[in-house]
Structures are given as structure tokens and as C-alpha cells.
Amino acid sequence: MNIRKITGDKKEYIDLLLLADEQESMIDKYLERGEMFALDDSGVKAECVITKEADGIYELKNIAVMPDCQRKGYGKSLIEFLFSHYTDCNTMFVGTGDCPYALIFYQKCGFTESHRIKNFFTDNYDHPMFEDGKQLVDMVYLKREQNHAEKNPSIDI
């Protein structure tokens, strides 16, 4: 398994990006300002786009795993890679729909609910969005805070 930064044409991965965010105009709002990483395991299995929002604060804008590769640890591996890659990351946010599958995945990756943006999906998308048969309305933001002492046990607190 290899994770590499994509520095070329990020739109080459649009089909994978659209799995996690099905409206291309919304992807366009963050794609160029974000950094993209692809997880390759005998072919690209997953990707993510992350943006730096402020000092020590990052937002995971898009993470997608090929449908036939889901539930095999690829998404979690990408998230763990991001925390090791961005050593200055104190807090990572991720926004998702209010659906159990996504919320459980992020909770298993160490995220907790932070806040919600009411009517995000109905106000920002040009068509109704559905996941697991449920219409998405509010954006659920989750966060994971990094304890830098855990990464460097020689720090005395």
C-alpha cells in the first residue's frame, strides 16, 4: 500500500471524488486549494482532499473509497496518514450527511460531533441528496483533536 500526493491533474480522479460529493461544482470550490492524496494498492483504491483552514486546523473535504474496496481499512489508513503527514494539525474537521454509516465510520476514526450547519444540502446543492434512502438536509461537522504529546512521549506535560 502506497499513499502519494497528487500534484498533477486532480480532475483525473473526478469519478472517485464524485462518490463522496456528487455535485462537481461543489468539488470545484475546494479542489484546487486543497491537497489531494491517493491510496494505491495494486491500483488506486481511495483518495482524499484536505484543506488548511487556519494554523493547526485542517478540514477533510472529500474522502472516497472505491465501492468494492470499502470496509477494508483504506479510508481509515488515509485519515491516519493525514495526521502523521500534517504534524502541525491540532484539529481536523470533516463535514458529512446525517447518515449512520458515515457517522459510525468517522467515530471509529476518532472523530466526535462538533456542530451542524442547518439546511446545508438543501441550500447548496442543485438537487435533493440522498444517502441510505434518507434525504440529506443538515451538514454534520465532526472533529478530531490531536494530542501531540501522544505522538512524542518525551514531552513532559
Rank of each mutant, 00 (worst) to 15 (best):
N2Q: 10
I3M: 05
I3W: 03
R4W: 12
K5G: 06
K5L: 09
D9S: 07
D9G: 06
K10Y: 05
K11C: 12
I14A: 14
L17T: 02
L18D: 08
E24R: 09
S25L: 12
S25Q: 13
M26C: 07
M26K: 09
Y30C: 01
L31E: 03
E35L: 03
F37R: 01
L39K: 00
A46E: 04
I50R: 00
K52I: 06
E53N: 08
A54C: 04
G56I: 03
E59H: 09
E59M: 01
L60D: 04
L60T: 05
N62C: 01
N62L: 01
N62V: 02
V65W: 06
M66K: 13
P67N: 06
D68K: 06
C69D: 13
C69M: 13
C69Q: 14
R71Q: 12
G73F: 07
Y74E: 03
S77P: 01
F81Q: 04
L82D: 01
F83G: 00
F83T: 07
S84G: 11
H85T: 09
D88E: 09
D88I: 03
M92G: 02
F93G: 01
T96N: 01
G97M: 05
C99H: 14
P100H: 15
L103T: 06
I104K: 10
F105A: 02
Y106P: 00
K108C: 07
G110A: 01
K118D: 12
K118Y: 08
K118G: 06
T122A: 03
N124Q: 06
D126E: 14
H127Y: 13
P128R: 08
L136H: 03
M139T: 06
Y141M: 10
R144H: 08
E145D: 13
Q146D: 11
K151H: 14
P153R: 13
P153H: 15
